[in-house]
Every structure is written in structure tokens, then in C-alpha cells.
Write a protein that binds this DNA or RNA. Structure first.
Lengths: 200, 200
DNA sequence: CCTATCTTGGAATAATCGTTCCAAGATAGG
DNA sequence: CCTATCTTGGAACGATTATTCCAAGATAGG
């Protein structure tokens, strides 16, 4: 009997992600969302609830669409250290050029905002962190079996270090850092983890 | 002939720094500043100008009071690698415990906000980055003369990597990361830069 | 076609945003 | 003490904030 939605909530959420990602969720008003999506306040609130819920939904969508594919690609890449290197090369490229250049990472940005203090949001941040560290560790474990890693390296600590490095790349890229500089920093960390003959 | 200020702009700016640092500058309103400092809007605007200028002033004050002493201590510490280790130990301690626990770093946080896009602010961010990297490099150069660093390590790249690592520590600490985890990550990076016998 | 039920557009809400303005108060040189 | 000049308190500004509400529109089962 009832009416159905006159829009697609999925594509709407994608538009919201772009908005929050580029400008920042805190400074993006509902009016901006209304204008960008073209739909009315009623539909917006009926579908997503308040702004904080919209923010959480956008963050989840970002992880799903942007982060997860890359994390899975890293975990599935069986090359070891070159897999990690490739991850960072693609990361730096995405952060410094293309349509999302200078946008940083929505998850990373959220860490620094007031919304990052909300328990609901912080749980997402932690899940994101665990996911990236796990993918890093998986790649490192492959690297170890291939003898690419220096003796005595703790894989958990190394995975944490590389994950932190990724955050910093996201952060500095937003301020306009050069790709070559970021890549050189990452490479220095990675080289420190590998055996001498494995570096290139 | 004229009247003089009935308050001390210096202590006022310190209070503003605390406010912007803890809560975030974007979500902190002028009303909050008025309440925290106890002075009126008139005095605030007459002394500091608008909010964006107040933000820039607070950022500069933060660098002066919080960052500079620590950076100088790092650059002046002649122990080499232990100096860098000590820097990070104090950093993690300051970020995870004490009165500023979970506040992160005002400069790091600003990277992720919309204000970080303003040319005036971005220049401060870049100066901060250069200052920390220079201090790191100075410590690394001492370390090299002491034979603490592994052969082939590029000091500039290593300094950049450590600087990035510091940003990430600031970021993750705000989301409640554990000190031990952060320290283990940092230590992994640093160990990768040092000679085998120098690690501990 | 009718009607129950949802959706939609858009007005209206109260609160808060950064900023401005002015009269009243305070100060120090003459 | 007087007065020129700055500072201060606080009201007021229009714009924007997130959110609510309701009548009008749209849909699909009966």
C-alpha cells in the first residue's frame, strides 16, 4: 500500500561520503548535504536519522568502499615485502594525485576531530586500525617465509609501525606533502625491516 | 592618556590553546572562549581579531610552548639513537597519561581539519614539520658519528619516517591507543635504522 | 478507482554561529 | 580634577546550525 522512496539511499550515502571526506564532517552542514544530494530534509532524516548517525554511516561506507578492497588486496598479495611496497605506492598515489588528491583519509581525519571521541565512532576507528594491522601482518608473515625479513623482527610491532606510517601519510598528504617525500619515508621504514639483499 | 588592558593577553592565549587543543578549534565557539577566559567579546576581538586569527595565534603559541622545547631538547641531546628513543618515550607518555592524555597534538589535529586547508595555517604546519624533521636529522647525524646506524641509511628519509611516526602516535593516542602498543611500533622503526649491536 | 500508508517539499523551530556596535567604565597625561 | 583615549560589558546583528512538523504528493494493494 505505502509509497516507496523516490531516491536511492546507496548513492546518496556515497555522495555524503564525498562531502564529509573532502570538506570534513564537522564543517559540513545538513544544508550542504541537502544541496549536494538534491533530496529534502524529511527524506534525509527519515532514512539516516540525525547527523551523527549519518556520520557513522558515511564512515562505515568509506571503509567498505575505499579501505576494505585495498586491505584485502594487501592481505591476499603473496609477494611479501613487495606487496607492502605496492600498497604504499598506491596509497601515496591516491592521496597526492587523482580526483581525491589532498583529501586525506576519512578515517584518519576522524581521529583528529571531536566526533572521534564518541564511543560509537571510536569503535569504528579501532576496527579500522585492527583491520589494517592484520593485513600488514599477513603480508609480513608471507615475507618471513620467503626469508625477506631481518632476523629478530617482531611481526606484530612491525605491522603496527607500518599501520601508523600509513596514517601519517594520509595526514600529511592533506596538507600538501609531496609524494616523493612520503614514499621515501615509508621506504626507509620498510628497508629497516628487510634483509640487506632484499632491498631495492 | 588611554586606558590599558585589564587582562593579560598571554595567559588568555594559553587558555585558548587548551580549549582548541582538547575540544578542537572547529567545534569550539567564541562563546566557549568568552566563558573560559572570563573576558568579553569586545576585548577578545580587539586583541586577537577574528576567530581564524585567534586560531593561528593559538597554533603558534602551542608550537612555542609545547613543541619547541621538546624539539630543541632532541636536537641538543648528543646521545644519538637513545636521544630519539627518549623523545618518543616522553611523547607517548605525554599523549597517553597526565593532564593532556587523549588530547593528541594541536598541530597534528589541525592537519585533518578544514582550517588546515587555509594557506596561513598550512604554512605553520609545514614549518612545524620542517622543525621536527630537522631535529630528528640532527640526532641521526650524531648517531651516525657514533656508529649506531646501519650502513646505507639515508638520514633525510629516516628523519622523515620518524617524523611521520610521531604524527601517527599523536593521532592514535587521541583515539585511546595504548602506550605500550605505540611504543612498540616506534621501537620497531628505530631498530630498523640501527646496527644490530646497538639495539636494546 | 479508492484508500491506507508511506514519502516528500518546505516552512518553522530554537539554538548557536562569528561579528559588530555603542554606551559606560577605567586609565593616565596635563 | 579634567579630559582625551582606550577598554569593557553586553545587547544586538544576520546567518547558519540541527531538528521537527505538517500538509501535499505518490504509491500499491484491494
Amino acid at each position: 500500500m505505502p509509497d516507496i522512496k523516490h531516491f536511492d539511499p546507496d548513492t546518496t550515502l556515497d555522495q555524503v561520503v564525498r562531502l564529509f571526506w573532502q570538506r570534513g564532517a564537522e564543517v559540513t552542514g545538513i544544508a550542504d548535504v541537502v544541496q549536494a544530494t538534491g533530496l529534502s530534509r524529511s527524506s534525509l532524516y527519515a532514512t539516516f536519522g540525525g547527523k551523527s548517525q549519518l556520520q557513522a554511516a558515511a564512515l562505515g561506507r568509506y571503509r567498505e568502499r575505499q579501505s576494505r578492497p585495498v586491505f584485502e588486496a594487501l592481505a591476499a598479495d603473496t609477494r611479501g615485502v613487495p606487496a607492502i611496497a605496492a600498497f604504499f605506492e598506491r596509497l601515496v598515489a591516491a592521496r597526492c594525485s587523482g580526483e581525491h588528491a589532498r583529501w586525506g583519509c576519512l578515517v584518519t581525519n576522524t581521529h583528529a576531530t571531536a566526533s572521534g571521541g564518541l564511543p560509537e565512532i571510536r569503535e569504528i576507528l579501532d576496527r579500522h586500525h585492527d583491520a589494517l594491522r592484520a593485513a600488514m601482518r599477513a603480508a609480513l608473515e608471507v615475507a618471513r617465509t620467503k626469508g625477506q625479513l631481518r632476523a629478530g623482527l617482531k611481526l606484530g610491532d612491525a605491522a603496527e609501525a607500518l599501520t601508523l606510517q600509513a596514517y601519517a601519510v594520509n595526514l600529511r598528504s592533506r596538507a600538501g606533502a609531496e609524494a616523493a617525500v612520503l614514499l621515501a619515508g615509508v621506504r626507509a621504514v620498510l628497508d629497516g625491516f628487510t634483509t640487506t639483499e632484499e632491498r631495492r
